[in-house]
Design a binder for these strands. Structure first.
Lengths: 349, 349
DNA sequence: TCCCGGGCTGACAACGCTGCCAGGTCCTCG
DNA sequence: CGAGGACCTGGCAGCGTTGTCAGCCCGGGA
């Protein structure tokens, strides 16, 4: 919980320090311009029915005092509409989420809305705490990349008029708008292509099946392999969290008798480690990755990625959210963003 | 300008729609618990002097109604302290700014503060508009990567108690805290090393001298070259905004009689284009870049970068801001973040 | 016995702003 | 000439919360 009051005592002390002036309010402007507060409000909000000369006087007073409307007071009085939305992601510095944030900011800007961003750090308790905090700040809507599995606690907020749209992962325990990548379909298509190219042994590298996207991508891959009668659980490696581990696991698999002739890396951190190891060994195994990434085309090993447009994902979700904010009360929607196979990396020598 | 009132009419209509309940307020909680509003306030804020049983009743009512304190009303009443800071950057999706945002979010979180992020898109008018908007939202402080040259318009806000810290670029027309990278020193050190390695002709590639960081880096490079009697304006190329242009310009310089034996790319977009072209040609020119970046160590050409820790830059600025928010009224500080030379890229064949 | 002070509670006003309404002037139209 | 409307302005209340203050009860010391 946040308790601003805990530092409240010192503030008043400081206010009396030299050089600190109180912020002017509409009362001050009204006094200077010789009009009522209400008229100042009208001028500041471009409301009709103010005589041009009066408006001029008010604007002059506004300029002289450096008045700026208190947005807090304004939205407190006029109901909701704080012109702010909340975005909850896992980690801002991660390029994937940064791209999402950028695209969301763009849409928000088109709607003259500001963006309150919070990072859950993949921690469900923190997620819940932050979402509650965002609601307490009266955001007009929420855009959430879920960290936890259960979002039932948001139900009352949603019912009370704070729409929420989930993206990249589905919400749990709550009927809500959701915008997802076609993880399963993309993985299926990519692996099917490997099969069609003649690969019979495909190593699959992933993080944890606790993560929704991993589960979906794995399922897509397994569907494709099973359809070709090639499913082999011994070629699946779990628990790969960083490029170094990925490189090691690729090496291990290649060192086994009858090694895979192709690898499917389920995210780009894993792809990266695989690229390094395959390049280092001068291997000619095929590599398929999920998630494109910056500079992928300059990496020293040819590979194919299941790519998708993160910006489209985010923009779609943001635009849906603004439709909800504007009053769209139709049934929750589930949208799927398509994927595409793209060749990356520099050709072999 | 943002005029929430433009959609205000519909909201009340919608409120009466099925499934929409008004948010409960302290009045509702008080009625249910059979106490006064003030007592609810005390309980919600962990204030002393409330009988345990009464507090229990209140908390039960809070839980039953799903009450959540309205943070807007709270900070309106109690003066400042919105527990929110504003961050103005050029573009969220850019990894450099994303890293800044991530580090700032981290520090903000340590201070139980939320982050309002806005992108200026390098547009000074937009910057001014957004900063004003952030102030109107009563943020406790501002963290700004300046787009424009003049920030005098912020003076009154700062004097009225919204501290501002500038980072990566200096503020204009305003005495203010500033945290900068040692652009000049880093460029100097890097170029001096090229000179010491025997290079006599160094091609310099930059965007525009309208940008502060470019000017500083160029000055550092020129200092080093002049000191060695090697300055040659004909080897400086301006106006390079993207990797493609950088690649072309590198090619042009190499095709001239008596070409450079080394290049200094003043940012990472330019480095990237230079790497591509040098690799493509199988050149053996030395390459020095400013700005490290993700995956740089995997690029197919060896080069050296003037690197710095973006997170340190951002954390330093954020921590300074929080000291200001907590009441530090000492003279504005100018802090410099050091740079370091690092070898990147894969060795030649 | 009374008084005092600490623990506990509530009434009231106010933070800065806007919705609602009343009231005024002036012009147009029947 | 009067009714109606458009234009313009101000007063007042209230958004949800908290600071201030008054007042209650109760126990202990004078």
């Amino acid at each position: 919980m946040i308790h601003p009051s805990s530092t409240g005592g010192k503030v008043s002390q400081v206010t009396s320090a030299p050089g600190r002036t109180k912020r002017p309010t509409m009362v001050d402007v009204a006094a200077l311009a010789g009009v009522s507060v209400k008229t100042v409000s009208r001028v500041v909000n471009n409301a009709p029915y103010v005589q041009p000369e009066v408006a001029q006087r008010v604007l002059a007073a506004v300029a002289e005092l450096g008045f700026r409307r208190n947005h807090l007071a304004s939205s407190l009085r006029s109901g909701q509409a704080t012109a702010t939305i909340g975005l909850l992601i896992e980690e801002i510095a991660n390029p994937f989420y940064a791209t999402i944030a950028g695209a969301v900011a763009e849409v928000a800007s088109e709607h003259e809305t500001m963006l309150l961003i919070a990072s859950s750090e993949e921690n469900p308790a923190r997620e819940q705490q932050l979402l509650r905090d965002l609601c307490a700040r009266q955001v007009d809507g929420l855009l959430v990349v879920p960290a936890g599995e259960d979002h039932a606690f948001l139900r009352s907020e949603v019912e009370r008029g704070t729409p929420a749209v989930f993206l990249d992962r589905p919400a749990g325990g709550l009927p809500a708008d959701t915008v997802l990548i076609d993880n399963r379909g993309g993985a299926h298509t990519g692996v099917r292509q490997l099969v069609e190219l003649g690969h019979r042994r495909v190593g699959i590298l992933l993080d944890s099946t606790a993560i929704y996207t991993m589960r979906e991508r794995l399922a897509g891959a397994q569907d494709a392999l099973t359809a070709a009668g090639l499913a082999d659980d011994r070629l699946i490696r779990y628990g790969i969290r960083d490029p170094e581990t990925a490189a090691r696991v690729v090496g291990d698999l290649l060192d086994e008798p009858d090694p895979p002739t192709a690898f499917f890396a389920l995210n780009n951190r894993i792809s990266l480690g695989a690229v390094e190891e395959l390049h280092r060994r001068g291997s000619d195994a095929a590599l398929l990755g999920f998630d494109d990434f910056d500079l992928s085309r300059l990496l020293p090993y040819p590979f194919t990625v299941v790519a998708y447009d993160t910006r489209t994902l985010a923009r779609t979700a943001a635009e849906l959210l603004f439709r909800r904010i504007k009053g769209d009360r139709t049934a929750p929607r589930d949208l799927l963003i398509p994927t595409e196979l793209v060749n990356r990396g520099l050709p072999r020598h």
